[in-house]
Computed example of a mutant assay.
Amino acid sequence: MYQKYFKRILDLVLATVALFLSFPLFLLVGLCLAAKQNGQVLFRQQRPGYKAKPFFLYKFKTMVDAYDQHGELLPDEKRLTAIGTWVRKTSLDELPQLFNVLRGDLSLVGPRPLLMDYLPLYNQEQARRHEVMPGITGWAQIHGRNAILWEQKFKLDLWYVEHQSFKTDLYILLKTVKQVVKSADIHAPGYATAPRFKGEIPTT
């Protein structure tokens, strides 16, 4: 009952309130990014949603588009701007995803939507993360976020798939606020964000 009806109502109410309260901050971050990044404010990328159906995810842009001599994007740490580093550290880059929640692409809570490139790399258990709506935050995010291994992330995502409830979602939201205030686990050791998932990771 909760997953089918009440969760969506909760998403709409909380996302609307959050957008209203954060609107001045939304404008401030947008203006700062525009001034420091030559007008580049928003980042849009296709991600897999519920049942792996593609949608466009929106975030504040924290990196410039810089390429090497082969036309490949440079590593994250070489593309992060100074203002982008601060926006990412404070998790303000996630604010535009509230519009994704209103559109029905995301829930406030659920497994994070990863890259489309990862879809063929998942084993059967890892792919179960798409059995529920993806979210802005989730069980894996409050248990290490980018600071844990991919194997751990997928186990935590699967736990959420099997234990989704109002009580769990409320707990995740409250813990997320605490993590954001502390700027905890925003990157993996040795990385500006996190290493790419390369598949073939055991789940037991």
Score class of each variant (00 low, 15 high):
K155Q: 07
G104D: 04
K59N: 05
P113Y: 11
V87C: 10
R88W: 04
N100V: 02
R112Q: 05
W139T: 00
A127I: 08
K155A: 06
L92V: 04
Q152M: 14
Q97R: 15
V109K: 13
K78D: 14
P111S: 10
R112A: 08
H70W: 14
I148R: 03
F99L: 15
I142R: 03
W150R: 05
Q97D: 13
L102D: 10
G135R: 06
N100A: 01
V101K: 00
V132S: 03
E125R: 13
G135L: 06
L149W: 11
P120F: 02
A140D: 09
L98E: 03
E151V: 12
H130L: 03
K59C: 09
P75E: 12
T90I: 09
K155L: 14
L95V: 05
L102A: 01
Y160W: 07
D105R: 05
L115E: 01
Q124V: 15
R88K: 05
G110S: 04
T90A: 01
P111R: 08
L115P: 07
L98V: 06
G71Q: 06
M116R: 11
F56G: 15
R128C: 10
R145E: 00
R79W: 00
R145M: 06
G110C: 05
F60Q: 02
L158K: 10
L106I: 00
D117K: 12
D76P: 02
W86A: 11
L119R: 04
L106W: 04
P96N: 05
G110P: 00
P120T: 03
L115G: 09
E151D: 09
G71E: 13
G104F: 02
P113L: 10
R145W: 03
L156T: 06
